[in-house]
Amino acid sequence: MTSIDLTGRTALVTGGAQGLGEAMAIALAGAGATVMIADIQDSGEQTAKALGPEHGFVKLDVTDEAAWDAAVTQTVAQLGGLDILVNNAGVEITSLITEVQVADIQKMLDVNVLGTTLGLKHGLRAMRPGGVAGRGGAIVNVASVAATIAFPGIAVYSATKSAVDRLTRVAAMESGKLGYGVRVNCVYPGLVPTAMGIGLANDVAGIGLFESAEAAVGAVVELTPAGRLGQVEDMADAVVFLASDAARFITGAGLPVDGGMGM
């Protein structure tokens, strides 16, 4: 079996300042890749410094096309290329369908769907033959188990993550048909006790769906054959795998990393 060694490769991770994105950046760097953390939060600079001096940070609002162009340009110039893109940045706003606000719908669409689409656009353009990097590579999009189950309180978030799945598959088909040499896959993370995950548990309790945040977490564990919540390392290792040569014949796939919750 091919060992997971990303030495000599460069990666751009959106939403890499904290949570899942930070864990993915750490895991990619641990496998030998040089990583550019991209985030709207300035704290991403400290996250990058903690990885080591060869890594970097770029400010990126994933809904801003000009910012994407600048982030890819900086990554290639500073790190020497772009081989791996992880479209991780996302936002979840809990609401019953009867109470959902237009502004919240728009925000989730903008970050989760528009942001991922722009990432695919600029990642493929950079990695394909003739692009500023031009040596192919791998793109991993972060969807969610919410794309595969009906969990209350997250209807719009679930819809946007289902869209990420469809974007992944069409992008993989286009990349293959047009000879880009870029594999495109996605992962479906289960619930992880990051700030976003804890916030979700509190929110679904707050709108009356569960008696408490602990009860919400218990319901998730009950639905999970593995019998526990996910950990950031579980998700990060899956991303490293899909970015590596160990997954060289995998494209257009969605990998559940949810302990069986979505089966």
Rank of each mutant, 00 (worst) to 15 (best):
E92T: 11
V192A: 12
A48D: 08
T98C: 07
T224F: 08
R228H: 08
A155H: 10
V91H: 09
T34P: 01
G80C: 03
F151L: 13
A201I: 04
Q101M: 14
A89I: 07
A205G: 09
E214K: 15
E214V: 12
P193V: 04
V72D: 02
A66T: 13
I93L: 15
E92V: 13
A195I: 13
L178R: 15
M1P: 12
L60S: 06
L114S: 11
A171Q: 01
A195Y: 05
G56H: 14
G260K: 11
P129K: 04
A27W: 01
A70V: 13
D104A: 09
R183K: 12
E22G: 00
G16M: 03
L167R: 02
Q101C: 02
A70P: 06
V187T: 10
G81W: 05
V182I: 03
A226K: 13
K49N: 14
T73G: 14
G218E: 13
V164R: 04
L12P: 08
V72P: 05
T73L: 14
L20F: 05
G134P: 10
G262L: 02
M24N: 05
A155F: 09
L242D: 05
G15P: 12
G119D: 03
G123F: 01
D104L: 05
M263E: 07
V145L: 13
A150C: 10
K161H: 09
L167T: 03
V142K: 04
I97Y: 04
E214F: 05
G80V: 02
L6A: 01
L191V: 07
M127D: 07
A33N: 07
V140E: 04
P152L: 10
V76M: 07
K121T: 06
T2Q: 12
R9M: 08
E22I: 00
I84V: 15
G80Y: 03
G252A: 10
S212A: 14
S3N: 12
A126S: 15
I40A: 15
E65V: 08
G153Q: 02
K107E: 12
D104C: 06
A38Q: 01
L255H: 12
D39A: 04
G260S: 10
V182L: 06
G218N: 14
Q18Y: 03
T116V: 14
A201S: 15
A216Q: 01
A29S: 15
G21T: 02
I149Y: 05
G259P: 11
S144I: 04
S3V: 15
P225N: 10
G119F: 00
